[in-house]
């Protein structure tokens, strides 16, 4: 799991190209659950935000997670295609879901 997390950081590292000693923000290894669809989550969600954003929401319905992914696409213009979005929603519901559709 550590290895996967590290890959996630590296994938996001171009965003921190300007890093210098002064403002270096530490990396926090949030306890992320591995499972089907994790690659899509890594590729699509971590570009903009850490796993903290996901974990902090608590266990939620499928509708809730669908709404979050929609928000990222509609408002924040994340280039996530429909297939990937579906996989991400499934992953979120599987691991951070409350078992309810809505």
């Amino acid at each position: 799991m550590k290895k996967l997390l590290l890959t996630a950081v590296l994938a996001a590292s171009p965003l921190f190209a300007q890093i210098s000693a002064k403002g270096e923000v530490p990396y926090v290894a949030f306890p992320v659950k591995m499972g089907q669809g994790f690659d899509e989550v890594q590729a699509n969600c971590l570009m903009c935000h850490s796993f903290g954003y996901i974990i902090n929401q608590g266990k939620q319905s499928k509708k809730f997670w669908r709404g979050k992914v929609d928000k990222m696409i509609v408002h924040f213009k994340a280039p996530i295609n429909k297939q990937s979005a579906d996989i991400v929603v499934e992953y979120l519901f599987e691991h951070y879901g409350n078992g309810k559709e809505e």
Partner: peptide, 21 residues
């Protein structure tokens, strides 16, 4: 508070490191 120090901060409750919350 999480035992991780952000620049110029004492340990605080951490929601995210990127963006920092």
């Amino acid at each position: 508070p999480m035992n991780v120090t952000f620049p110029e901060k004492r340990p605080l409750i951490v929601y995210s490191d990127r963006p920092p919350l």
